[in-house]
Simulated assay, not measured.
Amino acid sequence: MVKLEYKGFLGSLNFQSEACYYFGNLQLKRDNVMYQASSIEELEVNFRKSVDNYLQDCAAFGIEPG
């Protein structure tokens, strides 16, 4: 399995051949954050946006990421 990394967070990279799209999840213990795209390049962008959004949400709610 291929892993993505950004700001200390890891994410998976998977391909759904029947629907022809890429998808993944942030590798978190407590929360489930998914992202998807139609290309690998777009998936990496969406992965980074997911990390940034997740960190913003954690800060807004005053919770520790994880």
Rank of each mutant, 00 (worst) to 15 (best):
K49P: 00
E64C: 14
L26M: 11
Y35P: 05
G11E: 02
F9G: 01
K29T: 11
Q36I: 00
E44V: 12
G8N: 06
L10R: 09
P65V: 06
G62F: 02
L55R: 07
Y21M: 10
F9P: 02
C20V: 08
V2T: 12
V51P: 02
Y6D: 01
D31N: 14
G62Y: 07
K29I: 09
D57A: 15
N14S: 05
L4R: 06
Q16M: 04
E64T: 15
V2D: 11
A37C: 09
R30G: 11
L13N: 00
M1D: 01
G8L: 00
V51L: 11
K3S: 07
E18S: 15
I40F: 05
A19H: 13
Q16H: 13
S38A: 07
Y6M: 00
L26P: 07
S38D: 13
N32F: 08
L10F: 09
F47P: 03
E42S: 12
F47A: 05
S12L: 04
K49W: 02
G11R: 07
L26A: 10
G8T: 03
V33M: 10
Y35F: 10
E44H: 09
Q27R: 13
M1K: 05
I40N: 00
E5L: 11
S38G: 06
L43Y: 03
Y21A: 10
E44N: 06
L10W: 03
L28Y: 06
Q27P: 03
F47D: 02
V2I: 12
L10T: 05
F47G: 07
A60K: 15
L4T: 04
K29C: 08
Y54S: 11
L26T: 09
V51H: 03
Y54G: 11
R30T: 13
S17F: 01
A19G: 10
L28I: 02
D52R: 08
L55Q: 09
R30C: 07
